[in-house]
Design a protein around this nucleic acid. Sequence first.
DNA 1: CGTGTTTGACCAGCGC
DNA 2: GCGCTGGTCAAACACG
Length: 404
Amino acid sequence: MDFRLMGLDSPLLSTIHHMMDMSDDNADAKNINAPTRTYVRDAKAMAATPADVKEYPQSYVFVIDMPGLKSGDIKVQVEDDNVLIISGERKRDEEKEGAKYLRMERRVGKFMRKFVLPENANTDAISAVCQDGVLTVTVQKLPPPEPKKPKTIEINVSNRLIKMSSDKNKKAADSPENGDSTNQWFFELSDYLKLNDDDDDQWPDDDNVPPPLPEAEPLFFPNTNEVGDFGASGSGSNHLQGSSNAREVSGSEKKDVRERVAFKTKSEVEIIDDGYRWRKYGKKMVKNSPNPRNYYRCTVDGCRVKKRVERDREDPTYFSSAKCFLLELVCEFCGKKNIDFKKFQPKNTNITLPNSRKVEEGLDAISPEMKKEEPSPIFSNDRKIKLKKKRQKRREEAKSNIKR
DNA sequence: CGTGTTTGACCAGCGC
DNA sequence: GCGCTGGTCAAACACG
């Protein structure tokens, strides 16, 4: 099949959540890569619209939460022949005379999801049903194409005959290694190249374009057993609490411009997998709280996102967290190419991550400002090497002491 | 042995 | 200047 499998913790979703965590104020950031307001709004809409996607023998089914929306408020469209766009908007209830909001937590605004449909999706046979705030969109599959017959093309190059064939089975039998002396060679696109072809839309090369987040998502099919482990579809649902608290640190060059975002997460585990690779680097008891506060940083080289987490003192079923982003930096994990995603595979999970990529251009995909920054000293490769050397030295010292 | 966590020490910022 | 607090460092420790 042509589309890739992506787990619920895919970098795309992480990016969406990252974007969701950032306030609209970011639109004013000096960073030339800063996303536009519309872009952020769409990203938020996508992040806040959980969807399940199921594959049946004859169809694909998209199940999307659209709470409080009537069928007339929901739009289902197909763009560019293969992009399914599901959107809707919940407007704020009109305030009746004498009534005022004491609390307004229910989401108002745009709901949206985009999916790139696989080639065998029949865009002429799409149906949608909305019941109890849940929209079910069914896209029928096209019948499988008849298997292509072997095709042979003869090309005359420099007076030598080169034969290309799409029949893989003939390859071994006819290959020159098998003693055929007629200079016959067979070419076919490797899976790697095919993958890269498809990826171009999702992983743009241009550094100046924003991460690919509000674009249509390649269709992904989380393993059903894992659904509910992450994000809005399970116990780990995030509750954004209040607005982000941007903190600008001026002064010496070494100080960073940061964006801090506080939120609450209802979860039994302290660290839910949000796409970052958290590593604890500190723990502290805090004033007026029986619970310790833990400090984490993302251990991806060059990524300087940190967060602190403590169990909510009032409701221990929640964790209060604050993520700290460095505004002028872009986490290389967030939507940038050439990351070996397998290294982000969280432990003790079976979540499938997208196909790994070769890490070649790495930092080249990151903003110029980021290149100037030294990687986080603690867990960067430098630090690892330093630690290794130190340990080696200690061992050698111990050995020499034994000799004495 | 490599990797991640714990924990005491240290530092900077802030209010008094 | 002093004490308090939050944040970070890094050696020691634990674990697979």
